[in-house]
């Protein structure tokens, strides 16, 4: 697979480390009433989508940036690559 890095252009997927579903950006509020339940879901429960999925890849053998890659888990086709920083900010994360 070739991942089209937004800053570096097309890079071999072997340069990256895979973390998983991009829902991991959405860390639950640790002060909420139902934090224990929410963290269980966050840590252990997955949609495990068959089809187009947003996922986190880390460019370890490159610029060490985190990317959000939109990839089809049935065909391995990559349709979109964004900086994870931009995705997180767009979702309201400021840090």
């Amino acid at each position: 697979m070739i991942i089209n890095h937004p800053l570096l252009g097309p890079r071999d997927a072997a340069e990256f480390i895979y973390l998983g579903d991009a829902c991991l950006i959405d860390r639950p509020d640790w002060e909420a009433e139902d934090a224990a339940e929410k963290f269980h879901e966050y840590g252990y429960i997955r949609d495990n989508i068959a089809g187009s999925m947003q996922e986190l890849w880390y460019h370890e053998q490159g610029d060490r940036s985190w990317l959000v890659v939109t990839r089809d888990t049935v065909t391995h086709e990559i349709t979109d690559v964004e900086m994870a920083r931009d995705v997180a900010r767009a979702r309201g994360r400021s840090k």
């Binding site: 895979y18 579903d21 495990n48 989508i49 068959a50 999925m53 996922e55 990839r71 888990t73 065909t75």
Partner: peptide
Amino acid sequence: GYNSYASRGN
């Protein structure tokens, strides 16, 4: 190492 439902690897 990545999620996949394709019965083939890289």
